[in-house]
Design a protein around this nucleic acid. Structure first.
Length: 423
RNA sequence: GGAGAAGUGGCCGAGCGGCUGAAGGCGCUCCCCUGCUAAGGGAGUAUGGGGUUAAUAGCUCCAUCGAGGGUUCGAAUCCCUCCUUCUCCGCCA
């Protein structure tokens, strides 16, 4: 959520910046609601003040043994007036809140202008593209040929966009998870965290999935309703909700492996083949809560943490800065890591690292105590995948294949696979 | 799932219709004393919001004692619903 004060003082500047990412803020509507809010809030508080003062007088008079009847008559109609004022105010505030919850974050000034991923800016390339003296197969053919990946059985059990992994490939997925967690905990200073996979709606409001993107989520029909997490970002970031963190405990760094569940509404026809876009996939997520002055640097560091995984696995990739039009709702700046997939002959997203500034923190009321002011202030959140495990599995299969359809195991993964060199 | 108890400031804990935004303690910050590893004295110490303002400075008002409703001139205190925690029973990986 954006700072309501900023919208009040600098409405047109905010609207201009939002336009950069293609969001049209209804400044007229906001202005009108804000005027009404101000008027009603002043009135409400005046009435409350009057009632409080009168009631205190009644208390004093009563204990002094005086006749309170005339005092009671004097307050008689305050109650009704107050009630109607409060009701109206509540309504306006609700509308304002609804409106603010639908407004995306402001793009950082370094974010390139653009409408779609075509305008994303390539920052750097890493690694040599593998050369094959045969036609590179894609992961579906590689996986099904050996019976390691079974999409038909998954469809029988659950439906489309699921997979059953067998034997060595299932094991390699587990190896990747172990490897990534070990790197982030041992080399990058993250605390390994195990979190709930079902979360309440407050948590999803906190990180920005609700109220706008409910159709992307799987909802469990319980009382109260729960949602399957679309990413570990939700439970990890909500650890901070309604907390005030001491300066000495900053920054907080969490890493978790969880399954992620996405309904993929609106993506019909896209990536229907294979494991690229599934309803359920494994992901390693890094989340940091940092001092506001540090978040820009931390985004660079966290992105590098994700890159280390790709580098150690020997997977060629590139880093792009998302343009304003491709930026996620809550993010102010995002780097995507795109891994090379020989089977598709292109780079595909495998990690997304974002700085959210105080956007999530405001919704979450996640704060730290600034030692300079001694006051609680909104902290900044930065997160990124490190990495999407399913897609990493795909990338290893396609980059490490040979002409016989065998998959060679990257060296760093071999200790996690009993020393084996190929699947 | 059944029965009972409880949820108060960073923490512990009193209050159980008005003088309580909240006693007391712990912790923390600052000052003084003392001097050698620990103690004594004093002061301060919740959060959010509104108005005013150049101001995230002052001043002022409002709200908040798990959450939401209600009763009342007035609610941390009374009533209702929900949530969470604890104890016992049942069930269970």
């Amino acid at each position: 959520m954006l700072d309501p004060k900023l919208l009040r003082t600098d409405l047109y500047e905010v609207a201009t910046q939002l336009l950069r990412r293609g969001f049209k803020l209804d400044t007229r509507e906001f202005h009108s609601l804000e005027e009404q809010r101000k008027e009603l809030q002043i009135l409400t508080q005046q009435l409350q003040n009057e009632r409080n003062t009168q009631s205190k007088g009644i208390g004093r008079a009563k204990s002094a043994g005086e006749d309170i009847k005339p005092l009671l008559d004097a307050v008689a109609n305050i109650g009704d007036k107050l009630k109607t004022a409060q009701d109206k105010l509540g309504l306006i505030q609700q509308q304002l809140r609804r409106m603010l919850l639908d407004v995306p974050n402001l793009p950082h000034q370094s974010v390139p202008q653009g409408e779609s991923e075509a305008q994303n800016r390539e920052e750097r390339l890493w690694g040599e593209l593998p050369q094959f003296d045969f036609e590179a197969a894609d992961h579906v053919d590689l996986g099904t040929a050996k019976g390691w990946a079974d999409f038909d059985t998954a469809a029988k059990i659950s439906g489309s966009r699921f997979v059953v992994l067998n034997g060595p490939l299932a094991r390699m997925q587990r190896a990747l998870i172990q490897f990534m967690l070990d790197v982030h905990t041992q080399q990058h200073g993250y605390v390994e965290t195990y979190v709930p996979f079902l979360v309440n709606s407050s948590s999803l409001y906190g990180t920005g999935q609700l109220p706008k993107f409910e159709e992307d989520l799987f909802k469990v029909d319980s009382e109260p309703p729960l949602y399957l997490i679309p990413t570990a970002e939700v439970p990890l970031t909500n650890i901070l909700r309604d907390e005030i963190i001491d300066d000495q405990d900053m920054p907080r760094r969490f890493v978790a492996h969880t399954p992620c569940f996405r309904s993929e509404a609106g993506s019909y026809g896209q990536d229907t083949r294979g494991m690229i876009r599934q309803h359920q996939f494994e992901k390693i997520e890094m989340v940091q809560a940092v001092r506001p002055a540090e978040s820009e640097d931390v985004l660079e560091q966290l992105t590098a943490h994700a890159e280390v995984i790709l580098q150690q696995l020997g997977l060629p990739y590139r880093v792009v800065t998302l343009c304003t039009g491709d930026l996620g709702f809550s993010a102010s700046k995002t780097y995507d890591l795109e891994v090379w997939l020989p089977g598709q002959g292109k780079y595909r997203e495998i990690s997304s690292c974002s700085n959210f500034g105080d956007f999530q923190a405001r919704r979450l009321q996640a704060r730290w105590r600034n030692p300079e002011s001694g006051k609680p202030e909104l902290l900044h959140t930065v997160n990124g995948s490190g990495l999407a495990v399913g897609r990493t599995l795909v990338a290893v299969m396609e980059n490490y294949q040979d002409k016989d359809g065998n998959i060679h195991i990257p060296e760093v993964l071999q200790p996690y696979m009993g020393g084996a060199e190929q699947l």
